[in-house]
Design a protein around this nucleic acid. Structure first.
Lengths: 230, 230
DNA sequence: ATTTCACGGATTGTTCAACAATCCGACGAT
DNA sequence: ATCGTCGGATTGTTGAACAATCCGTGAAAT
């Protein structure tokens, strides 16, 4: 895990690197690691993240941790309390509605715009992924398939910005989904919805797909609000 | 225009402060200053921002400038080229379409949802602000009134997240609007549109308002694309 | 003359150590 | 029990240092 040092192909590798990846900075890798722990539910909402301990744990400087925090704060995964530290973000009742408002805006808009056959195929693939996970009784896989499904819907629009917005929203939701997924049947109920939405999309009935998706999101919000107290 | 510094009431003010503002960190202020220079067109797209010179200019540490850069990069106002520096973001043809895709999604969704009377009134206020600026031949005021108008539309949804997304998108657009505003009549043509949209909104005809807004955005994108070469 | 290569300067990436400012809890005084 | 004060801990910010990387320049080779 400590700097895999990928000494990949030189000629082509270097060219590709200059054009795209380069090497993720240390701060980026720290942020990625924290993002992972966040998603895994290792860091629960409200938990405090002290700079020094993380710096020591990951073997980096405190300043670098600070930069990573800035990244995560921009993604709303953590919140900074000035002079008090950063804490894992915790969504309250109002935030749930807020998040779903964003999702309704971008998901419905994306699906109403249709999309290239390849992108529609990606949506279909996510549906099948969900079905396979259900068959294997893989609850975790079901959850991620569901996220792939909604990510694929937004990807229909082919907008980099919408994609990153959506991925951030999904990351935010993963934060408190841990509480919801105690109910093993949580995602399973959504499978038929996804199937139906996807079918309408494939048939080119965008209006119907949009309406179905909207109804789905409203139901999902209700359910989340119920689970999340209040 | 320079930080109104509202030293509001003490008792209630202090309570509000503990809950919200505290004191903006130095990094935040640096970011704010750069944001300002960006919006004013003092820093043109593609320009390079060297850490040391900015640190010296503003009398802060290089590390602090770095944190400010992280903020701005998260807002897409600047881009980081690893080991090369940060540059003022410059939108290419593809980005214009991308930005408008986001705007179509969130603005149309927001207006279709209607909004409380106060929020609708805010939209109306922005329209009037535009008319006043037009009467005074204040091109700059016209531009900002237009942004207020669209900001108010998104605010109809009452979503913190949508608001920040929109404000970031608008900030991004200010970056290359400088090129467009050489045409003094640029915004003026949009006044009747805003008026019409607002009227439909006030009348509760949300469908019509949404359709008009969508058409407006499409036209605006076309125009931007035309102005912006390609 | 053109290409290649190596060098040097400049800037970024990262670390470290230090200090001021702030917050929190505990302890003690009233 | 309430209030103020103190001390420890953590953040905010700085400055300096060094490695890594990039870029342009100029020399060397073809």
């Amino acid at each position: 895990m400590t700097t895999p040092d990928g000494a990949a192909g030189s000629a082509l590798g270097a060219a590709a690197a200059r054009l795209r990846v380069a090497v993720p900075s240390v701060a980026d890798r720290v942020a990625a690691e924290l993002r992972l722990q966040l998603a895994e539910g290792l860091l629960l909402p409200g938990a405090r993240l002290t700079e020094s301990s993380i710096a020591e744990d990951l073997g980096v400087s405190r300043n670098t941790v600070r930069e990573a925090f800035a990244e995560l704060a921009a993604e709303r995964l953590v919140v900074r309390h000035p002079n008090r530290g950063v804490f894992v973000a915790s969504l309250e009742a109002g935030d749930i509605h807020d998040v779903y408002t964003v999702r309704r805006a971008i998901e419905v808009s994306a699906i109403r715009g249709g999309g290239s056959p390849e992108r529609v195929a990606a949506v279909r693939a996510a549906v099948e992924e969900g079905k396979a996970a259900a068959a294997a009784n893989d609850e975790e896989g079901l959850g991620s398939a569901n996220q792939h499904f909604h990510g694929a819907i937004v990807a229909l629009a082919g907008s980099r910005r919408l994609d990153t917005i959506m991925s951030q929203v999904l990351a935010e939701m993963r934060l408190f989904f841990h509480k919801a997924t105690v109910d093993a049947h949580f995602y399973r109920g959504y499978l038929p919805d996804n199937e139906e939405i996807c079918t309408a999309l494939e048939a080119g009935d965008l209006d119907r797909a949009g309406t179905l998706l909207l109804a789905y999101l409203n139901r999902s919000e209700e359910r989340q609000a119920a689970v999340h107290g209040e």
